[in-house]
Design a protein around this nucleic acid. Sequence first.
DNA 1: TCTCTGCGTGAATACGCATGCAAATAATTG
DNA 2: CAATTATTTGCATGCGTATTCACGCAGAGA
Lengths: 385, 385
Amino acid sequence: MEKFGHFPKRQVIQGAAPIGPKRAFDAQHSMASRRINSRTTSFDVAALAGVSQSAVSRAFTPGSSIAAQTREKVIEAARKLNYVPNSIASSLTTKRTNIVALILGNLANPFYVLALHEFSRKLQACGRQVLIFTVEPGAESDEAIMRALQYQIDGVILTSAQLSTRMTAICHERGIPIVLFNRYIPASDASGVRCDNVAGGRLIAEAFLSAGARTFTMITGDARGTTSQDRVRGFVERLIEEGIKRTDIEEVAGGSTYDGAVLATRKLFAVHRRRADALFGVNDIMAMGAMDVLRFELGLRIPEDLMVAGFDDIPDGARESYKLTTVRQPVDRMVEETLAILHLDDPHHPIERGIDRPIKGELIWRGTIPQPSSARKPAKRQLGQ
Amino acid sequence: MEKFGHFPKRQVIQGAAPIGPKRAFDAQHSMASRRINSRTTSFDVAALAGVSQSAVSRAFTPGSSIAAQTREKVIEAARKLNYVPNSIASSLTTKRTNIVALILGNLANPFYVLALHEFSRKLQACGRQVLIFTVEPGAESDEAIMRALQYQIDGVILTSAQLSTRMTAICHERGIPIVLFNRYIPASDASGVRCDNVAGGRLIAEAFLSAGARTFTMITGDARGTTSQDRVRGFVERLIEEGIKRTDIEEVAGGSTYDGAVLATRKLFAVHRRRADALFGVNDIMAMGAMDVLRFELGLRIPEDLMVAGFDDIPDGARESYKLTTVRQPVDRMVEETLAILHLDDPHHPIERGIDRPIKGELIWRGTIPQPSSARKPAKRQLGQ
DNA sequence: TCTCTGCGTGAATACGCATGCAAATAATTG
DNA sequence: CAATTATTTGCATGCGTATTCACGCAGAGA
């Protein structure tokens, strides 16, 4: 891809009326405004409103020192010219772009779509923009972060992608906060917000146990991330406490995807002819992949023949086809915490390093585990309308 | 939200070695680089490499006039300082941000996630960034577009949101191309790329007819958009051609969402006790909502008791739980065409107005319509790995 | 050896806006 | 009414980079 291009010079119109040195500026700009693609600038507005460019700037800067009447004049002139302030230019002086980079590693998992939506909503609500970077699942995020830095973003949010120590350092060195979403890196300088995955794993174990399960299978996710590991850990921990033998818990890697879980389930049950009472998909999308294989390829009934649980509580899992019992990750609060750690409102706030903020999830009973008597109504969640 | 903040002035260090006026610039910048949050600039790199700032700029501009040896020196110095060019500053002079605004109206429909992913991938591949705006479904996109304009984006892509004539005009006036994705507005200045929805609707009708259906129901989407209308039109058109009576085709609005389709289906079949051979969900997500009601609330078998078809071919519909027969929208080509109309590579290309580019979809046979003998293997599509 | 190209280079400047500073005006007080 | 104080305003400048212009210099041709 060629980066260079031909950018036309401003044409100097010769026949213009003679003007004094003081008006040179205005003239230059009003000439320019005839050109196609020329933006109208604060000078144009200033000229029309009969004030200085500073006044225009102030009119659009909340809290700055300007008379209400002047502001109105300016706003009116701006309206006439369809003027909008150039955020790019403004960023150059303020050193704030109001842009946050969101690095997405796995859009195939609806959980991250949920997160994206929530981030976008909340950031838009406070006048920021979201710059998206998609990274192939499991790939390094280094390149994406470097690109983000070029755009002088105010902060970086990283979901499901690897983060190198070097990148963390580079961001911090520049005063750019970076927060991991739904993961954390132990003993790292990078901060992160996540669900309390260990506790969540325990909730699932608890649910299975309460329904009488004694032998278990797990489909695990990305082995490099703590997220999957922690869920597994909490799950196993709780089972062991209850006297389950480790040999009665089998795990297979499902790569965090639906398709990966399909393969894993086939291997587990069709090839190895594994018998188990319960299957824990370390996230919902994998649990759903497993369910489809169990039901449609192996002819098993859920939960009668085998119980299933997931983790995340994505909207898809709530549908009648799955009615997946799961642990709800409180996306809303997680997003809130993530933004809080970014301190977008206060550029001078020292960067929060090494924070690990686990947030409790909640067990959502639906149809894939027989429910004890002390039951509540099944919960549901929606995205959008 | 306060926009203003206190930005510390650069501290002038007094005890610095005496320097000539020529080096004042360099000194200022190298002093600055000690400050927290200070970016290293092209001047810093220039100083270290022993060249002028122009040379640094040229080193990072492909195709510019610079000796290979000089470029290397500069790149080396930049590497040492972790320097990356400031795209914001560069945009100020080039008038190109390499940012494209993507306005999303309905992330709850995986089709748009698919599109987002593809846009992101393709744009990143050619060195552009994607600035995301989410708009509540059905809401005006005006505000989002105005925000995008502030950021001097190079183009706007609009999915599933209303576009006012005024906004189209404002964008065009500024030389910003705007393209509708998956919709078009008749007799409008705005260009758009979409699937050939009429033809797609006909494909579905054809499939139903080939399986022997004679009475039909439809769950329709957004009545304001042409997308749903066209699919319905093609569908009905083909049925009428085959001698189906209009009274044997009923339609209910499903609001383009899963939940809306659930309600619509209940109304249609549970309340009105409608009988029909086939149900056409105007998009996959609605067809899936309908299927879940038909199967789990009404106990109907698909396709034995009732055939179903969707439109889009989202990955979710391909799963064993649904195996939805549908029309595949060629996202890949649609995205390509959309970007082509944007002409990002050539800022001087006149804006393409009023283009309507329909792209043929393809019928994907899966399990929800009994398949005639001339069958192919069911197709599958994936997002991500 | 001396012009004629043409490439490489540095100095200077513009891009559009925010802000420190000082001047000017308005509001307040004694 | 004069003396302050508070509020507005304009001027000038800087933010970091791309690009124009003019100049230096090496190799080509005469």
